[in-house]
């Protein structure tokens, strides 16, 4: 192969005065920032819509189902383009201009990725709650809990424990999906990857480094969730969770 290996190019100065390895690090920073913020949004939305889908109220169920159906059946990149390029044209002119000029890309991107991921988490939360026995809700109600209190004290604490493995893989997916935000101008890891290839043509070195960087964040996320799982484990219960009988 006539490929010219050159690992030292990472320490060359790029045209903005920074060195290429600094581009990588800054990309990594944005990747982590976008992912964690989106994940937080997604957990909130996913929990709210997931709970709605388990209530006895037909309207709440319909709203929750619609949210999940819409955001699961349109590709992420298309969703991001809708938020960035379509929505500003549909709202009143002043707001549209503000969205295009003053609203930070970061905010739009994390809301977009958060909404996308939230639909998947809503599925998990719903499945977790439904895997509990009906008797758990009854027991809460029989003690005088309101419907909301049965969620707060009885059903959600168990549901989260049960779906924690699924949430772990959603969290790792967020890192991977955050790469798509390059398409709307977020300077995250993949954006830097593309840019460094264009500037230096050192495809193999940078591919190896970026791949390793994604491994590291995925591994760190995995460990973090394993730690949470261990902390929240209930003595006397089989791992993986047995919600009810």
């Amino acid at each position: 192969m006539n490929y010219h290996w050159d690992w030292l190019f990472f320490f060359q100065e790029a045209d903005d005065g920074l060195m290429y390895y600094q581009w990588v690090l800054s990309g990594l920073g944005w990747t982590v920032a976008v992912s964690l913020t989106s994940l937080a949004i997604a957990l909130l939305l996913g929990s709210a819509f997931g709970v709605m889908r388990t209530t006895p109220n037909r309207w709440l169920i319909a709203i929750g189902d619609t949210y999940v159906d819409v955001f699961r059946n349109i590709p992420l990149i298309v969703q991001l383009f809708l938020w960035f390029f379509v929505l500003p044209e549909l709202v009143p002119r002043d707001i549209g201009l503000w969205m295009k000029q003053d609203l930070p890309y970061f905010v739009t991107a994390v809301i977009g990725l958060g909404l996308f991921t939230g639909a998947r988490i809503a599925e998990q939360v719903k499945a977790g709650i439904n895997s509990l026995s009906r008797g758990q809700r009854f027991a809460g109600l029989a003690l005088g809990f309101t419907e909301w209190q049965t969620y707060r004290y009885v059903r959600l604490p168990m549901a989260y424990r049960i779906v924690l493995p699924a949430l772990t893989s959603e969290a790792m997916n967020v890192y991977k999906n955050s790469a798509v935000t390059y398409s709307v101008g977020i300077l995250e890891l993949y954006f830097q990857y593309k840019q460094i290839i264009e500037k230096t043509s050192q495809v193999l070195e940078i591919t190896i480094v970026i791949t390793l960087a994604y491994f590291v964040v995925a591994f760190a996320t995995n460990r973090l969730f394993a730690w949470i799982e261990q902390r929240s484990r209930v003595p006397g219960m089989i791992a993986g969770g047995q919600g009810g009988k």
Partner: peptide, 21 residues
């Protein structure tokens, strides 16, 4: 007010339904 009424009526279930966590 169902919660208030239920709080006055104790109930024991077939599958115990203690809160496992």
């Amino acid at each position: 007010n169902l919660p208030r009424l239920r709080a006055q009526v104790g109930m024991v279930f077939q599958h115990f339904e203690l809160f496992p966590h």
